[in-house]
Design a protein around this nucleic acid. Structure first.
Lengths: 141, 141
DNA sequence: TTGGGTGCAAACTATTTGCATTCGA
DNA sequence: TCGAATGCAAATAGTTTGCACCCAA
């Protein structure tokens, strides 16, 4: 396991990640990367915007959306679609599933091993499976 | 199996369903119910709006959203959250999963038997599981 | 009759887009 | 330098809300 598989990442690691993915490492993208890749987490675009501009006003809303889109396209983060009102961006790159608290909107990771799918349907072979998402929706009593 | 478990449903069946759920069967709700419960399908709010007003302008957009919310709360339909841009309402009440074509936005049912989950994580017992969603995201070659 | 249901328009929120400006390589 | 990236503001889309009116029971 090399340093790029670990959290948290230094600024230099973020720059490497971006370069490795063919993404030009600009100030804004690096800043956003530092926020996202500091630990495994789920953030909405709005949360990223706030976190990134904590100290100074550095990144615009449009750029946050843009950048999240670029990162997702390159597989650096994944979109988690569980809440009808917004998309979460997940910096946990390992295979895993989600536990969603529908009352509070919280999202938690479930390790890949904690869920086992023993059977999937046969699909026409012109179909590529991108992902098999398992979402357990729960609420507190 | 009684008639209410089957598709398509007559106007009278829709009225019964609504009454059984404690929902006042108004003109608009019945109309929306007739559209939704005519067969197993996935419709967005927009599609319901169009279908309902096919012949005459009968139901407003706000009422469609309202009514879909009421139906979902009472378990007559379920919300399917797979597309970041909109919610689908599913009139298929039997347990099942979904196949989502991320390129076209199409949504297909997978029968419950076609997917088998052999292991779920242990959850604190103050948590109620509402649902376990499996979504297979695919795209064509 | 009368309180819940509806229609409408306006408000809101998340996200996208167009275009002039700026900046990384 | 120079094309790619950014910022901004305005546009868009889906959804929600407030309120006066209406109708099912």
């Amino acid at each position: 396991m090399n340093s790029l598989d670990q959290f948290p990442k230094s600024r230099a690691d973020v720059v490497s990640m971006l370069r490795d993915s063919g993404i030009t490492p600009t100030h804004q993208r690096i800043k956003i990367g530092e926020v996202l890749f500091s630990c495994k987490q789920h953030l909405s675009a709005e949360q990223v915007l706030v976190a990134v501009n904590q100290e100074d006003e550095e990144v615009s809303k449009a750029t946050v959306y843009n950048t999240l889109g670029v990162f997702a396209q390159h597989g650096l983060i994944s979109e988690v679609i569980v809440d009808p009102s917004k998309v979460f961006y997940d910096s946990n790159l390992s295979k895993h599933h989600h536990l969603y608290y529908s009352d509070t909107g919280e999202l938690e990771d479930l390790t890949d091993e904690s869920v086992e799918i023993s059977k999937l349907p046969e699909l026409p072979n012109d179909l590529q499976i991108e992902d098999v998402d398992v979402i357990i929706r729960v609420h507190r009593n």
